[in-house]
Computed example of a mutant assay.
Amino acid sequence: MNFQYEIVNWYQLYKRDLPWRHTQDAYVIWLSEIIMQQTRVEQGLPYFNRFLEAFPRLEDFASATEAEVLRLWQGLGYYSRGRNMHHTAQQVLVLHGGVFPVEYDALIKLKGIGDYTASAISSFAAGEARAVLDGNVFRVLSRFFGIATPINSTEGKKEFSDLAQELIKGQNPMIYNQAIMEFGALQCKPKSPDCEVCPLQVQCYANRHNLQQALPVKIKKMPPKKRFFNYLIMEQDGDILVKKRQAGDIWQHLYDFPLIETDGEAGFPDEALTSEIRKLCGDQVVIKPLVAKKHVLTHQIIYVQFFVLANYIINFKQDAGVKWVGKMELDNLPQPIVITNFINAYITK
C-alpha cells in the first residue's frame, strides 16, 4: 500500500468544496488558515466569508481599525489572533508592498504566523514542499504508524515533523497537504473514526491493535483556572456604562462592564460583594441580581454574574476605559461573546 496515494485518492473522492481551495491567493489562504485554527469549518466558514466581504484586499484589512477587526472576530475566541492578523496585514503592507508573501522563509517572520501556517500558505499558494502538522495530521500519522510519543512534547513534535516532511517528498504539496488534513477531519476523526470503510485499515497500526482511542498521545495540561466576574449594569438616560479591558488579561481591548472579581462564587446577598459594590456605587445603591452564566475558555472557566444597579453614585474613576455609550454605539463595540449574549437578551434596544 502507498500511504500517500491512498490519502490523495480518498481526497479526490470525498473532499469538501471550500472557497479557499479555489484560489492560490496567499492573502485569502492566510485568512482561512488563521480563522480555521482550532475552529470547526462549519463554525469558521461564516467568519471567513464576513472577513473577505469586509476586507476583500489586504489593503482594506490593513487600513481597518483594531476595533473593526475584533468586532468581526467576536465569538471565535483567541482574540490575540485577531489582533495579530491586523498587525500582520500592516506588516505586509509596509514590508512587502501589500503583496502577501508565499515563501515559507518570508511568511515565518510575520507576526502571528508559525510553522503550521507558514507551511500551509507556502504549499497551497506556491507549491513549496513544506509538510503541515495540525491536529488532524498528528492523529492520522500517530494511528497509522503507531507512534505513541506525545504530540505536544519536544520529542514528539520533532518525530512527527521529520516523518511528515519525509512523506511529502515527491508529492504535489498543494494536494497532499489538503488531503491528509481533510482525511483526519472527516475519516480519521478523534472519536468514532470510520475504520470499516477506511482505505488504510489493513496496515493501520491503531486499527490492527484496537488503539484508535489511545492514539495520539497528548500530555495533559493543568486544569483550567476558575474565575468569578460580577458585572455591574448601570444605565442612565438611555446610555449604559462600559469598560474597555486593558492589556495583560483575557479579552484585551474588548468592552465589557465595570466588574468586581471575587475569589469564589458570590451568592446574593453576599456581604463581602455587597460591601464592595457600595464602596464603588454608594451606600444607597439598590442591587438586583439578574442572571448567572458559565463561560468556558481554553485555560480558564469564567463564572459570570450580572447585577443591575439603581440609585447609585459612581465613586470610581472614569478614565478613557470607562465611558457611557448609547445603544447604537454599544452594538458596534467589540465584546466578549458572553457580553454580547447578555446585551441581546437583557438590554432594551
Rank of each mutant, 00 (worst) to 15 (best):
A64V: 14
T65R: 09
T65F: 05
T65W: 02
E66T: 09
E68S: 10
V69T: 09
R71Y: 10
W73E: 01
Q74Y: 05
G75S: 11
G77Q: 08
Y78W: 03
Y79K: 12
S80F: 05
S80L: 07
S80Q: 07
R81F: 03
R81V: 05
R81W: 01
R81K: 10
R81G: 10
G82H: 07
G82C: 12
G82A: 12
R83H: 02
H87P: 00
A89G: 15
Q91E: 08
Q91T: 04
Q91N: 03
V92S: 05
V94K: 13
V94W: 02
G98R: 13
G98F: 04
V99F: 04
P101K: 11
E103S: 14
Y104C: 05
Y104V: 05
D105T: 14
D105Y: 07
D105F: 04
I108K: 15
I108H: 07
I108E: 02
K109A: 13
L110E: 06
L110K: 15
K111C: 08
G114S: 13
G114M: 10
Y116G: 02
T117G: 02
A118E: 01
A120D: 05
A120N: 11
F124K: 06
A125R: 07
A126D: 05
E128F: 12
R130N: 13
A131H: 10
A131R: 15
A131T: 11
V132G: 00
D134F: 05
D134V: 08
G135E: 05
N136W: 04
R139P: 11
S142A: 14
F145Q: 01
G146L: 00
G146Y: 00
I147V: 15
A148R: 11
A148L: 06
P150F: 08
P150A: 14
I151V: 15
N152S: 05
S153R: 01
S153L: 02
T154R: 04
T154S: 09
E155W: 03
E155S: 14
G156M: 05
F160Y: 15
S161T: 15
D162V: 15
D162N: 10
Q165T: 10
E166M: 10
E166F: 09
L167W: 02
I168G: 10
G170H: 11
G170Q: 12
P173F: 06
M174S: 14
M174P: 04
M174N: 11
I175V: 15
Q178C: 14
Q178R: 12
Q178N: 06
F183G: 11
Q187D: 02
C188P: 00
C188Y: 00
K189R: 15
K191M: 08
K191Q: 10
S192M: 08
S192A: 14
S192I: 14
P193G: 12
D194E: 09
C195S: 09
